[in-house]
Design a protein around this nucleic acid. Structure first.
Length: 581
RNA sequence: GGCCCCGUAGCUCAGUCGGAUAGAGCGCAGGAUUCCUAAUCCUGAGGCCACGCGUUCGAAUCGCGUCGGGGUCACCA
């Protein structure tokens, strides 16, 4: 039950009855939300101000007319016009008790919405090159994409979580060569790793596995013959490594899409370019060097260009390199056409800040290959600066100069890592201080929220102890007399719960999972606040040994808080422990 | 030089498809535990929302410009 959506509809209906000429798209701009100042009431709407202009009427006049429609409503205790034309509603308590009831009956589905209407959305995230283990730079995008996917699935989209494996470029050739060296090392040779190769220890076991599988057989082949075999093995090994790293963070994908399958004669890239040519989206031409500084090896040449400028990009983009291979972008156009042909009209890509220059051409590509039928939202995750006590972070590394994702998870745990990364807007750079994130204290919102959840279990333990005969089962609680929950403190907490569905909807629409994290913090705060009131006022305790009826009602409130905390934490992929150790 | 992101309390950040007196945590000052976990709560101080101009009933939010921080700029992926 979403109280806000309910009144949005009712206000819109009232307006339609009053002014039949109003267009639907104007009505859709009406917002019903809690007023900033709670003393203004429970709900507030800008409806009158939104429609006043198209109607050519005074906002306060319209507001008064709408308000009159609700005067006789039994659910509405008071309705008044305020300020420039806000309409404020104060609701009667049975509505809030109905919300509480619906949390119990809907359970994990309380907050689930159907804004996606079952439409397919493809969310691509991580897509790190399979050349080694995941490092911290990948972590934010991984967590963000994963949480966004959960959020959109919860909001009625048919979500596919996808990982694009960049397994076709020259980096992969270098990876194979590096692995071949490790293979020779495993056979007893002393090797030296040239600069430009991948020096990481993680290739040693791959070399050993090759030695175990092939003995010295590969040495007898030419490098050209051996490399493809090595490449197959090392790609599998690297993807296993990456999947294992992601699993540590509780990040998962449905589809791993290989770039290599797009290449080759008659492959998707060929057919896509042919199609683009037929559509006159490709031409042979020259590019201007970038303004400001010309690259030293700039070569003015005629090349195959995609008309990206026709679709909002700043320049047309090359599709074929000077060595006649396809550019990365050519493959990416084919890839996104493939997504479109698989039925995705909604796509989301989660990219790192270093790819922000890539956004426009990606949007251009999607627009072109779908004739404008598909849309792609590119979410950029800004850089994360690693700190320890305010100092730039260094730690012992197992490979290269990079701090690994697995190091971070080992150091602070998956829950804290995920929550902290999701407790920031994705498009703002952030600091990640290990000392703060590790500290299980008030500084750390993840423990604050988990503590609130654990406290709900504590309440039930207490109830079982103090009222041994009391039935605390689900059936008993749904039968509780909720009208006993009439204090301001009770209602305040229920109203916090009532926010959940609209928070989910707004977060899903905006593709902003951090709103979930902030809401959970607020709900936890409301719950901790209620708890503290019980210290002052016995009547506000959850457990009252001499009043089992009130206790039951309060316990159903506690159960509802727990349910919403669980619903939110599970969207974020953060655990909800019954006790903090 | 072009493009993208950011600039809000001492610090870290919410709030931004225009809405009422701009919020939270930390830090600072003070207070709460005979009673459900004080890993908690309550009170207080603290702001030209970087700056200027504009759009209108109304701007932290939208537009233009300036300043400051970060990212990025054919033939890498």
């Amino acid at each position: 039950m979403n109280v806000f959506a309910l009144f949005q509809t009712r206000v819109a209906d009232a307006l339609k009855a009053l002014y039949p000429s109003l267009a639907e798209d104007i009505l859709s701009r009406i917002v019903v939300e809690p007023p900033r100042d709670a003393s203004h009431g429970d709900l507030s709407t800008n409806a009158a101000m939104v429609v006043a202009k198209p109607l050519g009427k005074n906002p306060r006049e319209v507001a008064a007319a709408i308000a009159a429609e609700f005067k006789a409503d039994t659910g509405v205790a008071a309705v008044e016009v305020a300020g420039p034309g806000f309409i404020n509603f104060r609701l009667n308590t049975p509505i809030w008790h109905a919300v509480l009831k619906s949390v119990a009956t809907q359970g994990a589905d309380f907050g689930r919405a159907d804004i996606g209407k079952g439409e397919a959305v493809n969310i691509e995230y991580v897509s790190a090159n399979p050349t080694g283990p995941m490092h911290v730079g990948h972590t934010r995008g991984a967590v963000f994409g994963d949480a966004l996917a959960s959020l959109m699935a919860y909001s009625g989209y048919d979500v596919t979580r996808e990982y694009y494996i960049n397994d076709a470029g020259s980096q992969i050739d270098t990876l194979a060569k590096s692995t071949l060296l490790r293979y020779r090392e495993a056979l007893g040779e002393t090797i030296e790793i040239p600069s430009g190769f991948y020096p990481g220890d993680y290739l040693i076991p791959v070399g050993q596995a090759l030695a175990a599988e092939f003995g010295s057989e590969l040495l007898e082949k030419s490098e050209a013959a051996a490399l493809p075999i090595v490449k197959e093995r090392v790609l599998v090994a690297m993807m296993d490594l990456i999947r294992a790293d992601l699993a540590r963070l509780n990040v998962h994908h449905d589809v791993f899409f290989s770039e290599r399958q797009l290449h080759g004669q008659g492959g998707d890239i060929d057919t896509t370019l042919e199609w683009l040519r037929d559509e006159d989206m490709i031409y042979q031409g020259r590019l201007e060097p970038p303004k400001g500084k010309t690259p030293e090896d700039w070569e003015d040449r005629e090349q195959t260009l995609f008309r990206a400028t026709n679709y909002g990009d700043d320049v047309d983009r090359p599709l074929v390199k000077s060595n006649q291979q396809y550019t990365y972008f050519a493959a990416d156009i084919a890839y996104h056409r493939n997504k479109y042909l698989r039925g995705f009209k909604h796509m989301v890509n989660v990219l790192g800040a270093d790819h922000s220059g890539y956004v426009k051409r990606l949007q251009a590509a999607v627009k072109a290959v779908s004739h404008g039928e598909a849309e792609i939202d590119v979410r950029i995750c800004q850089l994360v600066r690693l700190l320890k006590n305010g100092e730039p972070f260094k730690m012992s590394k197992r490979s290269g100069d990079l701090v690994l994702l697995s190091d971070v998870v080992e150091e602070v745990g998956a829950d804290a890592t995920r929550f902290m990364l999701l407790y920031r807007r994705n498009d703002a750079a952030m600091d990640f201080d290990f000392a703060v994130v590790k500290e299980q204290s008030r500084d750390n919102p993840v423990f604050y929220v988990q503590y609130a959840h654990a406290r709900t279990y504590s309440v039930f333990r207490q109830a079982a102890e103090k009222l041994p005969g009391l039935d605390l089962g689900f059936g008993a609680l749904t039968g509780a007399d909720l009208s006993l929950l009439s204090s301001d403190a009770d209602l305040e907490l229920i109203k916090a719960l009532a926010q959940w569905p609209r928070i989910v909807a707004s977060a899903a629409e905006a593709h902003e999972p951090h709103r979930i994290a902030f809401y959970l913090y607020e709900l936890a705060s409301a719950f901790h606040g209620f708890w503290a009131k019980g210290n002052q006022d016995v009547a506000l305790r959850f457990v009252n040994a001499d009043d089992s009826m009130l206790t039951k009602a309060r316990l159903s409130l506690v159960a509802a808080v727990r349910q919403v905390l669980v619903n939110g934490l599970s969207l974020l992929g953060v655990s909800a422990p019954e006790e903090l150790s």
